[in-house]
């Protein structure tokens, strides 16, 4: 059974990290990094050609992780596969014991690195969740035909807390939960105020689902600025950008401050019981995740 599910159901503070398959077939680096996460996290999201940039498929890396005794979370977008392709992958994943999934709509190919790709979007995030829920409940495939064996999944989705108009995002969250999302990982947040504003709105909307706050450790002020300008739903406060600048100017390492900021935020979220857990997106610096957790007092 999904480790993440067990932790969340038992009221524990869940921690997940995220990594990408290689742009190539040599998985030795991702596997080395994953090894560092052993025992530190309750799940490792494996991204599905994030930002619409071609990588080895997520299912492959998930299988490697599972075979190492780690807990992969299969991210599934609707961009590259139709409903048959998605369900087939989920069944194959389940045959390897991979039962924790995260449904996303997926970035459009034209924002990625293989721009001529035909976008599929047969199902969006909500549609993927609904299909998987139906499969579990009725034991059938996407055409209503009986399956010879039916996996039990732990299905997640994402949400963007900093979004204008927020009610629209809350509506979408409701649809995801109604379609079967059992846990939510948020887009990266950088301060508890914006997180609280979002969580209040979720409460007011009477939506009940475990929410894990997305954490992105900043490597530099430039990274923060770039994300503010280019990544939807990201709002790094000016004070943090300034602090990162200052560290750099005085010859220090901004990435270390970024790790401290991330650790402090995790500590605050946990101390104030704002969320059921955190999801750390280190964007290539996954090896820092254990140190961040240590700093946050989460050993």
């Amino acid at each position: 059974m999904s480790l993440l599910k067990t932790v969340l159901e038992n009221g524990g503070f869940a921690v997940t990290a995220e990594m990408a398959p290689p742009k190539g077939y040599d998985v030795s680096h991702p596997l080395e990094v994953a090894e560092l996460l052993r025992g530190k996290v309750h799940g490792i999201n494996v991204t599905d050609m994030q930002s619409a940039c071609l990588k080895a498929s997520g299912l492959g890396l998930c299988i490697h992780l599972k075979q190492m005794g780690l807990e992969p979370i299969l991210q599934i977008t609707g961009r590259d596969r139709n409903r048959m392709g998605i369900l087939g992958d989920v069944l194959s994943a389940a045959s390897f014991g991979i039962d924790t999934v995260l449904a996303l709509t997926g970035d459009h190919p034209v924002v990625g690195d293989c721009r001529e790709t035909k976008p599929v979007y047969d199902l969006d995030s909500v549609g993927i969740l609904a299909m998987l829920s139906k499969m579990e409940q009725e034991g059938c495939d996407c055409g209503g035909n009986p399956l010879s064996s039916v996996p039990t999944l732990f299905k997640g989705a994402t949400v963007t807390p900093v979004y204008e108009p927020l009610p629209l995002q809350i509506h979408k969250l409701r649809r995801k939960v109604e379609a079967g999302a059992q846990y939510i990982q948020t887009q990266g947040i950088f301060d508890t105020e914006s997180l609280k504003r979002f969580l209040d709105a979720v409460d007011r909307a009477d939506i009940h689902v475990p929410i894990m706050a997305g954490i992105i450790p900043l490597k530099s002020a430039a990274m923060g600025k770039f994300m503010n300008e280019n990544v939807p739903g990201i709002a790094v406060p000016d004070a943090q950008l300034q602090a990162l600048e200052n560290v750099k100017a005085s010859g220090g390492k901004p990435s270390e401050l970024g790790m401290t900021l991330a650790a402090d935020l995790i500590g605050e979220i946990k101390a104030q019981s704002l969320c059921c857990g955190v999801h750390i997106m280190a964007i290539g610096a996954e090896k820092n995740v254990p140190a961040i957790l240590r700093q946050a007092g989460m050993e």
Binding site: V159, Q187, P232
Partner: peptide, 8 residues
């Protein structure tokens, strides 16, 4: 998308 916006 027919079920609401993506996060993009």
């Amino acid at each position: 998308l027919v079920n609401g916006p993506c996060g993009g």
